[in-house]
Amino acid sequence: MNELFEHHLHDIEEHFSGWDFSYITESGRMDNGMLSWSYGSIVIPYIRKVTSMLDMGTGGGELLTKFQPLPSVTYATEGYAPNLPIAKQRLQPLGVAVKEVKEDNLLPFGDGAFDLIINKHEEYSPAEVRRVLTSDGIFVTQQVGGNDCARINQALGAPVNKEYLHWNLQNASEELRREGFDVFECKEEEPYQRFYDIGALVYYLKAIPWQVPDFSIERYKDALYSIHETIQSVGFFEVKTHRFVMKAKLQKDC
C-alpha cells in the first residue's frame, strides 16, 4: 500500500465537533450534489413570522445561528452529549435555551408551546411533535432517508443498517397523517456525494458512526485501499445520498 494512502488514513485522527464538516467540505475534498430545495430558504420565512419556535437536534447550533434574528422564545434540543456544551456556548448568548433530549417522545415542554418546530436530520415522534405544537403551528423537517450512502457500505463489504431502510417520504408522510397532520408540501431526492480522497471518506465515517457502526481502519483497510485506487483512477468515489423534506400542519378537525 502506497505512501499517499497511508498519509490520508491519518485524517481519522482530525478533530470533529458539533455538526461541522468544513474540514473536508471547505477544502473541496467532499462535495454534495444540489437538492431542488433549500432547507434554510424554507424555514426562514416561517421563523420571521412566529413568536416561539423549537429547533430539534441542533447539533452544535451552527445552523440555527445562521437563521437570526430568532423569535423571542426559541429553544433547541440535542441528544448527542458531546454536542451539548458546544450548542450551549454558541446559542445561549443569543437567548436560546438548549435542552438535552434522550427520548424523542419525551420533549421537556408543555402542550402547545411552539408556533414552529424545525428539524434537520433529527429523529422525532409525530405524537410528541403534535403535542408541543400550537393548533395552527407548522412543522418543517428535512430527513436523511434509509438508502443514504448505501454504496459506502457495499464498497466496504459492511452490512447496511436495515433498521432504517423503510425510512422514506411515503412512510414518513403517512406516519404524520395518521397522527392528524396535513402534509401540504414535500419532496424526495437522491443527489450524489463525492469523496475526492480516501482521507475525506474516513473522516466522514468517523463523524457519522451509524453509517458503518463497526468501522475502523484496521478492519476495513483492504476495502479502503480498493476505494483509494478507484479515486486515483476516476478522480472521486461517488455515492447517492437520500433526502426528503416535509411541511406539515395539524388538520383542522383534529
Rank of each mutant, 00 (worst) to 15 (best):
Pro209Leu: 04
Val239Tyr: 13
Cys186Tyr: 11
Gln193Trp: 00
Phe181Met: 06
Trp210Gly: 01
Ile198Trp: 08
Val183Thr: 10
Glu174Lys: 15
Lys240Asp: 10
Ser173Trp: 03
Lys187Phe: 12
Leu176Arg: 03
Ala223Gln: 13
Glu229Arg: 15
Tyr220Gln: 02
Ile227Thr: 10
Glu185Gly: 08
Ser233Tyr: 10
Tyr192Val: 06
Phe195His: 02
Gln193Lys: 15
Phe215Asp: 07
Ala200Pro: 07
Tyr196Phe: 15
Val183Arg: 07
Pro191Arg: 14
Ile217Cys: 08
Arg219Met: 10
Glu229Asp: 10
Tyr204Trp: 13
Asp222Phe: 05
Leu201His: 04
Leu224Val: 03
Arg177Met: 12
Phe215Arg: 06
Phe195Asn: 00
Gly199Asn: 07
Glu189Thr: 02
Glu174Asp: 11
Asp182Trp: 10
Gly180Cys: 05
Asp222His: 10
Gly180Asp: 00
Tyr220Ile: 03
Tyr204Val: 01
Phe195Lys: 05
Glu190Gln: 15
Thr241Leu: 08
His228Phe: 15
Ile208Thr: 07
Arg178Met: 08
Leu205Met: 11
Glu229Ser: 11
Lys240Arg: 15
Arg219Phe: 05
Glu238Lys: 15
Phe181Lys: 04
Asp214Lys: 10
Pro213Thr: 06
Ser226Glu: 11
Ile227Met: 11
Val239Ala: 11
Pro191Thr: 10
Gln232Phe: 08
Pro213Met: 08
Ile208Ser: 03
Tyr204Met: 05
Ile198Ala: 09
Pro213Phe: 08
Tyr203Asn: 05
Val239Gln: 12
Ile231His: 00
Arg177Leu: 01
Val183Tyr: 08
Val234Gly: 05
Ile231Lys: 02
Tyr225Phe: 14
Glu190Lys: 15
Leu205Ser: 06
Tyr225Asn: 11
Asp197Val: 02
Trp210Gln: 07
Val202Met: 06
His228Ala: 04
Leu205Tyr: 06
Gly180Val: 01
Gln232His: 11
Gln193Leu: 13
Gly180Tyr: 01
Pro209Cys: 06
Gln193Val: 12
Lys187Ala: 13
Lys206Val: 05
Glu189Gln: 13
Gly199Asp: 04
Ile231Phe: 04
Phe195Gln: 02
Ile198Ser: 09
Glu185Leu: 11
Asp197Glu: 13
Glu189Gly: 04
Ala223Trp: 00
Gly235Thr: 09
Phe236Pro: 01
Leu176Glu: 02
Glu185Arg: 15
Ser226Cys: 00
Ile217Ser: 08
Arg194Met: 09
Ala200Ser: 15
Tyr220Asp: 01
Ser233Asn: 12
Phe181Arg: 06
Ser233Glu: 09
Glu229Tyr: 06
Leu201Tyr: 07
Pro209Val: 06
His228Arg: 00
Thr230Glu: 14
Leu224Ser: 00
Glu218Trp: 05
His228Pro: 02
Ile217Val: 14
Asp214Ile: 07
Tyr220Gly: 03
Pro209Glu: 09
Gln232Met: 14
Phe184Gly: 01
Glu179Met: 11
Phe215Leu: 10
Leu176Phe: 05
Glu189Cys: 01
Asp222Tyr: 07
Val212Ser: 09
Val183Lys: 07
Pro191Ala: 12
Lys187Asn: 09
Arg194Phe: 00
Ala207Gly: 08
Tyr220Glu: 03
Ile208Ala: 07
Glu185Ser: 14
Glu188Gln: 14
Gly180Ser: 06
Lys206Asn: 12
Ile208Phe: 15
Gly235Glu: 09
Glu188His: 12
Lys206Gln: 12
Val183Gly: 07
